[in-house]
C-alpha cells in the first residue's frame, strides 16, 4: 500500500514492526541508523517515515529536522519514553504525529494511514477551488498555498490544519476537534500536537508569528482562521 521507512536501532523491534506492517500490506524498508536512512532516502523514496527517537549516533530529532528540511515527507515518531520533553522536541523538529512504544501495530497502522490521507485531496469536499484570504491564496483542489503569489512549502499536516481552519473562517475549532479532523485520533489526543503544528504553520504563513493574523488563538476555546 505504502512505502514505509522504519528507522529503529533495536533489531527485535525493527523485525517485529517490519513483520507487523508488512502483514498490513505496506512495503517496509528498515534502517538501523539515522545516517544510513538519510543516505538512502532519495533511493528509497518512502511515503512515510517511522522514526525512533533514541538512535545511536545522530539522534531522532536531528534525523527529523534533516528530513523535514528536504521536503514534506510525513514523519511519525516512536518515543521509547513517554517523556513530555521528547514529545515536544520531536513535534518542534517537525514530526507529524507520534506513537509511544511499545506500540500496538494497529495503532501505528492507523496513524500511518491518517498521515497518508493528509497528502491526498479530500474527495468528499465539494471544493470551489481557489480561495483568497488577504495575502494568502488557498487552492483546495491543487493543494497549493501561496502568499503574495509565491507558493509556500507546507508539510501535509500543516496544510490539512490550514484547510480545516480556513474552511470555516472565523469559527473557533477546539484542539480536540482539530485532533479528530486533522490527525484522525479517534479519541482524546495530545493537544500539543495541535499547538506544535500551529507554531510551525504560523512560522510559514504569518508576517509576524508573534502576532498571528491568519491562525488566531482564542483563549479558553481553541483556534480560528481570521478574521483578517
Amino acid at each position: 500500500m505504502a512505502r514505509v521507512l522504519l528507522i529503529e536501532d533495536d533489531e527485535a523491534v525493527r523485525d517485529g514492526l517490519s513483520l507487523a506492517l508488512g502483514r498490513q500490506g505496506h512495503s517496509v524498508q528498515a534502517c538501523e541508523s539515522g545516517e544510513k536512512a538519510l543516505a538512502e532516502l532519495d533511493a528509497l523514496r518512502p511515503d512515510v517515515v517511522v522514526l525512533d527517537l533514541m538512535l545511536p549516533g545522530m539522534d531522532g530529532f536531528e534525523v527529523c529536522r534533516r528530513i523535514r528540511a528536504d521536503g514534506d515527507l510525513p514523519i511519525i515518531m516512536l518515543t521509547a519514553r513517554n517523556d513530555d520533553m521528547d514529545v515536544v522536541a520531536g513535534l518542534e523538529a517537525g514530526a507529524d504525529d507520534y506513537v509511544v512504544k511499545p506500540a500496538q501495530p494497529r495503532v501505528l497502522e492507523a496513524r500511518i494511514r491518517a498521515v497518508l490521507r493528509r497528502v491526498v485531496s479530500e474527495p468528499k469536499q465539494p471544493e470551489q477551488g481557489v480561495e483568497v484570504h488577504g495575502d494568502l491564496t488557498i487552492d483546495r483542489v491543487g493543494l497549493v498555498v501561496s502568499k503574495h503569489g509565491s507558493p509556500i512549502a507546507l508539510a501535509p499536516t500543516e496544510l490539512r490544519l490550514l484547510l480545516e481552519l480556513s474552511r470555516v473562517p472565523r469559527r473557533v475549532l477546539s484542539r480536540q476537534q482539530l485532533l479528530e479532523a486533522v490527525w484522525e485520533h479517534d479519541y482524546l489526543g495530545d493537544s500539543r500536537l495541535v499547538d506544535a503544528c500551529v507554531q510551525r504553520l504560523r512560522a510559514k504563513i504569518e508576517d509576524d508569528p508573534a502576532t498571528p493574523v491568519y491562525v488566531q488563538t482564542v483563549r479558553g476555546f481553541g483556534y480560528r482562521f481570521g478574521p483578517l
Binding site: D10, V13, D15, G16, L19, P102, A103, P105, R106
Partner: peptide
C-alpha cells in the same frame, strides 16, 4: 521499566500476528 520496554515493543509488534 525502560529496559523492559524494548523487548516488549518487539513482542507487542507481533501479538497481532500471533492472534491471527
Amino acid at each position: 521499566s525502560h529496559e523492559l520496554r524494548t523487548p516488549l515493543a518487539a513482542m507487542t509488534a507481533v501479538t497481532d500476528v500471533l492472534d491471527e
